[in-house]
Each structure stands twice: as structure tokens, then as C-alpha cells.
Nucleic acid binder design. Structure first.
Lengths: 256, 256
DNA sequence: CATCGCATACATGTATACAATCAAATAAAG
DNA sequence: CTTTATTTGATTGTATACATGTATGCGATG
């Protein structure tokens, strides 16, 4: 788990300070479902729970509010935000748009062929994990490779603003590519899903390599559509859903 | 000026508290060019300058860092961020992508025809300002209408994540639609530029009305391309450039 | 019995005091 | 004269104390 968090832009810089620890702790508590949607987050209980003063906690809560996981109460303070299904579809659609744009820009702005090295390595190594259902740590390795592939595409887009926008979208845990991939393993159609996803990766890589911007964009967009389909299936199965981090923040309609 | 600021989402809620005032003050100081790019923003001088304590100032600086106008120094504290020309083109291109997506979604998700009322009002009223070069306050009115038109399109997209992403892009002052429109008035080709921009508005409105998603997206994308062309012209004229808020944050190459 | 008003308790927003870390300047040694 | 080590200064990060505003519970009154 730690290796996956350390890879993100935030993880590295924010450790070593009380504010950073508080931020990571509260975010993890939110994803784990320690609080209910709409619940008020008071600072003093956090002081008792985390062992840090109010000031860093306030900083952390403010940043989480900017990230969209909390919202400011009109009377002051913060409450846990709740997400509707529409929010989730919206986030995934936006991820498709942004990653599609990233793939297109990567194709259009590709300089030396050397830049594709990391992308090719991720793709080849993921191929090895396709055949037999492997152990749990090799599965985690697959998730890392998946994230690395997507991150590499965005890096090739050479667009800081695109990076920022996508980072913001990915703060919603269920919008992350690995979120649905995580649940994919428990589905009956797991093998086919993995194959289709990897085929998308192949097309994206090939399109970028041959500087086919429109094709790369379409493939990346389709790839997010796969996430959408999988999540749709997952939402019907509460046991699988519990594997997705942050699932407790989803306000389900008509809970039986 | 105040009316334009009050319209944004931030302006309303953040007034009435010291943190909000500090945030608005520092942001305005940054846009006005009170600090040079790369300059360190210390807290104590801010205390003396704004008359508020360190805590709200720290909160405000933290939020400005999240907005992208400041960046955290590795040794702690904040420094004024500098923007390259590449950053500006990047931001404008992302604005084109996002507004294009917004226009497409608006066309695809249009419900009752009644939803177009505000868009039509903005468009019609902007037509009135096209002919003779009017006074300075009617020009400000045109800016408001322009912003309102763009905001209305995004609202019709019914996508909170798109709204958030676009808000983040628009934190860069020169990426805002009104920024270049502001400079447009001083250009020799002003009249033609206004006409072309308004023609774009017409196509966007017409495409949304007839639920032509691809056409709406293309028109909106082209509209941001117009911003890009205008800004390219403006960048050659330092006198006009000084009218654009936040221009001092741009790191110009090869300053003669 | 319901409703309005008041008081109390609590939570947030702000200010300030303290500590640790980083930077620069100065002095000493090679 | 240069380089390095040490000291000093300042600035950030953190903790806590204070004040203001809000919500809740109790009592009084219609």
C-alpha cells in the first residue's frame, strides 16, 4: 500500500510535517469509511485521535475541502461530503475526456522515440500478468503498472494544466483507474475484462507511437468507458463494492 | 470591478472572515504585480501589511498554493510562481478542451428549451454592444455578459467535475475569457475580433439548441483558439499587455 | 401542551507564544 | 586568499490561549 501512495505527487512532499501526517490520516479515515456522509468533522476529537494540535488539523481539513472530499458548512467547520451515483459517472466521464486529451497530446507532441520506453516497459510487463490468476502481491504489482502506464501517458502530454485537472478528478477514489481494476478480479468475466483493458493499452501505445492523435484519444476514451461498465456491475454487488476505497461515501439510492 | 468579482463562486462566501479578506487581498496583490515571480512571500510582512494575524494569512497562502498562484518552497514557506509562455498556451488549450466538452455536454444533456433562456439573453444583449465603440462602463457590461455566457454554457453541461476543472484552469488570470477580451479593445482589428467572437457565440448557442454536440464542441474549441490568437498579438505589445491582470507573473523570454 | 426566549455549553476563528529548522554572515584555520 | 565551521538571526511550523458566534437544552409564558 505504501508504495502505491508514495508514487503520487502528494505523498512524498507532505510527509515529515504534522500537517502532512494529519492530511494523510484523515484522508485514509475518510476512504476507510470511519465517518458517514454528512457527518460533521470537529477539530477537537481529531486532536484527541491524531495527537496533533488544532492548527495542522485545520490546515489538513482545509486542503481536503479544496480536494472535494469535505465541504464547508455555512455555519463554519467541515462536513463529510456525500457522492451520488451521478457524481461518479460524471467523474469517470471527465477522466475519459482528460485522459483522452492526454493521449491525443502525447501523440501530437511526441519527440524522440526514446520517450516511449517507459510506456513500452509497462505494457510488456503487464502482458505477463494476463494469463493465469497470480498471487495477491503480483496483483498489486499489476495495479502499480496500470497506474504507471496511465501516468506515463499523461506525462507525455507535457501539459501541466492537464496534469492538475486530472489529479483533481482522481481525488475521488472511485474515479481512479486502479479502483475498478481492483474489483475486476472478483468478477466472473475477469479474464475477458483484463484482456480488453490490455488491448486498449496496446492501441493507445500504438497510436501514440505512430502519432495518430485522434486514434489515441478515442482509445483512451473507450478505456474509461470500460471502467464505467465495470463499476456499473460492481455497484450491484455490495461485497465487491466494499473493496473499493471510499465506497462508504457513496449515497446509494433506495437501499434495500 | 466589484460586481465582476462578486459573481464568482469564491467571492461571496469568503468575505466576512479574516481568512477570506487576506485571500482576496493577496490574490489582488499578486494580480497587480506587487511581487516579482520567484519572490518569497513571508508571513510577517503580510501581517504588517494586512493587519491580520499570521494564522489567517497562512490559511490564505495555503489556498493560493493550491490554486497554483504560489508554490511551496522545499525549505518551507511560499514563493510567487512564475509562468512561462508555454504555461499560458497550455492553459488556453485546456480551456478550449474543457469549454468544448462543456458545450458538447450542454447540447447532449439539454432538457427543456426553457434552459436556454439565460444563454439567449446574454447573446442578444451582447449583440447590442457590437456596433459603435461604446463607453467604458458599457464595455465592462460586455465583459460581464461574456463571462455570463461562458458560465451559462458550463452550467448547462450539468457536470460538477467539469466545473471544478475549469475553475482551476481559470485561476490563471490570463486564461480567463475576459482577459483577452479586455485587451481586444485596444487592438486595431478590434471590431473584426468582436464580430468573430460573437459569431462563435451564435454557433455555440445554435448548436446547443439543436442538440448538435460535436458542432458545439468544435465551435467552443475554435472560440478558445481566438483567445490564443489575440493573446499572441497582445504579447508583442507591452503597453496592452499591462492591462491584463497578472501579466507581471509571466516570465518573458529575451526581454530587450 | 406548545412555543418562544434565554442561558449555557461548545465549536470555530483568531491571535500570540514557543520551538525547531534553515540561511546567512562572520570568524578562524589551512 | 579561500574554504570551512560555527554562531546568530530570522522564519516557519506547532501548540495553546482567547473571543466570537452558533446550537442545544431548559424554563417561562401564552
Amino acid at each position: 500500500m505504501n508504495s502505491r501512495e508514495a508514487k503520487t505527487q502528494r505523498g512524498g512532499t507532505e510527509l515529515g510535517t504534522q500537517t502532512g501526517r494529519a492530511l494523510l490520516s484523515v484522508r485514509e479515515m475518510l476512504f476507510r469509511g470511519d465517518f458517514q456522509p454528512g457527518e460533521r468533522i470537529s477539530e477537537l476529537p481529531m486532536v484527541a485521535r491524531l495527537g496533533v494540535s488544532r492548527t495542522p488539523i485545520r490546515l489538513a481539513l482545509d486542503r481536503l475541502a479544496h480536494e472535494g472530499l469535505l465541504e464547508v458548512s455555512p455555519s463554519g467547520g467541515f462536513v463529510v461530503r456525500s457522492f451520488t451515483l451521478a457524481d461518479i459517472w460524471d467523474a469517470i466521464e471527465m477522466r475519459g475526456v482528460l485522459e483522452g486529451t492526454g493521449a491525443r497530446l502525447a501523440a501530437e507532441r511526441l519527440g524522440h522515440d526514446r520517450e516511449l520506453t517507459e510506456l513500452r516497459q509497462c505494457f510488456e510487463e503487464m502482458n505477463a500478468y494476463l494469463g493465469p490468476v497470480s498471487s495477491i502481491d503480483s496483483f498489486a504489482r499489476y495495479l502499480d503498472l496500470n497506474d504507471a502506464f496511465h501516468a506515463a501517458v499523461i506525462r507525455l502530454a507535457k501539459s501541466p494544466m492537464l496534469q492538475r485537472s486530472l489529479d483533481q478528478v482522481l481525488t475521488l477514489p472511485f474515479a481512479q483507474p486502479s479502483a475498478v481494476v481492483f474489483a475486476r478480479a472478483k468478477l466472473p468475466e475477469a479474464a475477458e475484462m483484463f484482456a480488453i483493458g490490455q488491448e486498449h493499452h496496446r492501441v493507445i501505445l500504438d497510436a501514440i507511437e505512430h502519432r495518430q492523435g485522434a486514434r489515441a484519444e478515442a482509445a483512451a476514451r473507450e478505456h474509461s468507458g470500460l471502467s464505467r461498465r465495470i463499476l456499473k456491475t460492481v455497484l450491484d454487488d455490495r461485497e465487491i463494492l466494499s473493496c473499493v476505497p471510499g465506497a462508504s461515501l457513496i449515497r446509494m439510492p433506495a437501499v434495500v
